[in-house]
């Protein structure tokens, strides 16, 4: 716990200072935080032994909600857009969750993938509504009623996102230590006993699923704001796969993991853009295999020296 706080505080300090020293990094770091938030949602599900290859759905849904509201000049204000879009994602997750929490492992992962692919296809095909593959532009909204210049806007959004990410991480950490969080882990270790405690594993997983949808939705809302543009690609399986990659890369041992993973992911992406622009997902695939086989607790695990789970003899 103490170590988690130290790593987290170190990361936070670095993130607070960095954009001041090098303004070019603001947007990249914001993107990393957004993906970290989505990966945090994946971490919550991984604690229950479940993986979703479809959380791009919530990321994209929230981003499109922002885009539609912004286009309609309806609540064209960050402080309205972000909460509304996040809540909308949470609602969608609740709806989808009613169905997918009945399933585990393979079915859970693949049903999430299938649903996100349907959404992706609809975004592409319903051209007249969604703008098809070209997506939609998101005009820059006001922030607390003030219209800001681009650079200022980006800096503010970064710090707001950082604050939200810290709150989300602390909240998730707290939840994971609570009885409900332990019940969530119990789905992974022994669902039979959980049922014989009189606890509904579906309800437990449902709560976690909605939480993961909210986290991905928060990330998606901010992405729409900083990139000023949304495309169906946000819902594509590649995106969902990246969230899983980030969660595994960072490690699921602590809530700092996904954010470490997201920063590392941006660094890898930067190098890949130069050295392997055509094959960068293959690079991710190879790294994923390396992590799974050689560092199953991810970066966070490497930093805290945690032994792989299940070998604690």
């Amino acid at each position: 716990m103490a170590r988690q706080l130290i790593i987290g505080a170190g990361l936070l300090a670095a993130l607070i200072i960095f954009p001041l020293l090098s303004p070019w990094s603001t947007v990249i770091l914001t993107v990393a935080l957004c993906e970290g938030l989505a990966a945090l949602g994946i971490l919550v599900l991984l604690r229950a032994g479940q993986v979703s290859f479809g959380h791009g759905l919530y990321f994209a849904f929230s981003a499109y909600v922002v885009a539609f509201m912004a286009a309609a000049r309806f609540g064209h204000e960050v402080l309205i857009l972000v909460p509304v879009a996040t809540a909308a994602s949470g609602l969608l997750a609740a709806l989808v969750g009613l169905f997918v929490v009945r399933y585990r492992a393979i079915f859970f992962g693949m049903l999430n993938l299938a649903i996100s692919m349907v959404f992706f296809s609809l975004l592409e095909k319903l051209f007249s509504i969604t703008g098809g593959a070209d997506g939609k532009r998101v005009p820059r909204p006001t922030l607390a009623g003030i219209s800001l210049e681009r650079a200022e806007f980006e800096l503010w959004i970064f710090y707001i996102t950082l604050g939200l990410a810290v709150l989300a991480a602390l909240g998730v950490a707290r939840y994971l230590l609570s009885p409900g969080g332990k019940a969530l882990e119990a789905i992974k270790s022994n669902e039979t006993r959980l049922e014989y405690l009189g606890v509904s594993s579906r309800k437990v997983l449902f709560g976690a699923y909605v939480l993961s949808g909210l986290l991905a939705g928060l990330g998606g809302a901010v992405i729409a704001l900083v990139s000023g543009h949304v495309t169906p690609e946000l819902a594509y399986w590649v995106r969902s796969g990246e969230f899983v990659f980030i969660a595994i890369l960072g490690g699921v041992g602590g809530v700092v993991g996904p954010f470490l993973g997201a920063l590392m992911f941006q660094i890898i992406r930067g190098y890949a853009a130069v050295y392997a622009p055509e094959t960068w997902h293959a690079v991710l695939g190879v790294m994923l295999l390396v992590i799974i086989f050689f560092a199953p607790n991810g970066l966070y695990g490497l930093m805290t020296g945690r032994k792989p789970a299940g070998t604690g003899q």
Binding site: F53, A105, I106, G241, E278, H281, A282, G285
Partner: peptide, 18 residues
Amino acid sequence: EEVLQLLVTFAVFMILED
């Protein structure tokens, strides 16, 4: 674990697509 198996074949998928 099934999840691990899914992750491994998913990684293979990413590699083969590229």
